[in-house]
């Protein structure tokens, strides 16, 4: 530790950080509560109590948005399982694994709006995907991937998986590469098979990183899919891809009701806060276990 004669010195060092965080996080997080109780027109408006909350909670569209965000959560276990499989295969250093890793990373290099625009055209009813299906005689599966309200959310989900899986693969692979190889080799010498090594030695050590990914991607699916949704269908067809972020965006820009948008923001904030607290709680539990 650096000892300073001036006890205020550390505060000089952290002051810019505190100011920045207060401005970008502190002020808005306080202000959304105030706004959420007002009918804001432009920049101010009268106090209306809980009215905004009541209206939102009674609106079927809000419920649909929440439901869709929850449905997107299905992506999390799918991504995790697929990533683990691919990462473990790569970890086995199959010939060419470095090239595979380089290529597999490419979806992540393409920005979401680019991915969204390309795949939106790709999955059009008369688009290349269906054309390919028809060429090989699978006409039956040439569905209206983007245009059907029953399918659109699942198509969006596939697009999200396609891109977000990359982060998970690379994450799992990096964790694998940092595992203790001697332990694995010892197990191998003891006659443990591939599956046994995976199940009893590798996976238990991955618990921390899996848990981390779970929380991060949980929040992604709840509150960070705007770019996909906005670029692909802006919530449509019908209301089939409406999500909370777009709901907020529409109330802010289309309906010019920042108060209502704030009320949704408050709810979203509270949900993520609860999630973070759970994560901290779980981590502390683990740490105590480790110490015990």
């Amino acid at each position: 530790m650096i000892r300073t004669k001036n006890p205020l010195l550390p505060y000089f060092f952290v002051a810019p950080l505190v100011l920045l965080l207060l401005f970008v996080f502190g002020y808005p997080l306080v202000q959304i509560f105030d706004f959420s109780f007002r009918r804001i027109r432009g920049i101010d408006g009268p106090w209306v109590g809980l009215e905004n909350y009541q209206l939102i909670l009674n609106q079927p569209l809000f419920h649909e948005a929440v439901q869709h965000n929850v449905q997107l959560l299905i992506a999390v276990p799918i991504i995790l399982i697929l990533s683990l499989i691919i990462a473990v295969i790569l970890y086995d250093r199959v010939p060419g694994w470095r090239i595979y890793r380089t290529i597999v990373f490419i979806p992540y290099i393409l920005a979401v709006p680019i991915v969204a625009v390309v795949l939106k055209k790709f999955f059009q009813y008369d688009g290349p995907f269906n054309e390919a299906l028809r060429v090989v005689g699978l006409d039956l599966f040439a569905l209206d991937w983007m245009g059907s309200p029953d399918l659109a959310l699942w198509t969006v989900l596939s697009v999200i998986i396609w891109r977000e899986i990359v982060f998970c693969i690379v994450l799992m692979l990096a964790r694998l590469l940092s595992l203790d190889e001697e332990m694995l080799e010892a197990a191998q010498l003891d006659g443990a098979g591939w599956w046994q090594r995976l199940w009893f030695i590798i996976l238990p050590q991955m618990a921390g990183v899996i848990e981390f990914y779970f929380v991060v991607s949980f929040i992604t699916m709840i509150a960070a899919v705007f770019s996909y949704i906005f670029m692909i269908g802006k919530g449509g067809p019908g209301t089939s891809t409406m999500v909370l972020e777009l709901y907020i965006f529409n109330f802010l820009t289309r309906s010019s009701l920042p108060g209502v948008a704030s009320a949704v923001s408050v709810m979203l904030f509270l949900v993520t806060t609860v999630l973070i607290l759970i994560l901290f709680w779980v981590r502390r539990g683990e740490r105590e276990q480790e110490l015990a």
Binding site: I32, I40, I219
Partner: peptide, 22 residues
């Protein structure tokens, strides 16, 4: 300070937008 700063990593940006916009 470190705990608060670290937790802010997971606050979705959309939450802060309305007040900053105004």
């Amino acid at each position: 300070l470190l705990s608060i700063s670290t937790s802010l990593m997971v606050i979705p940006p959309v939450v802060m937008i309305v007040p900053l916009f105004v």
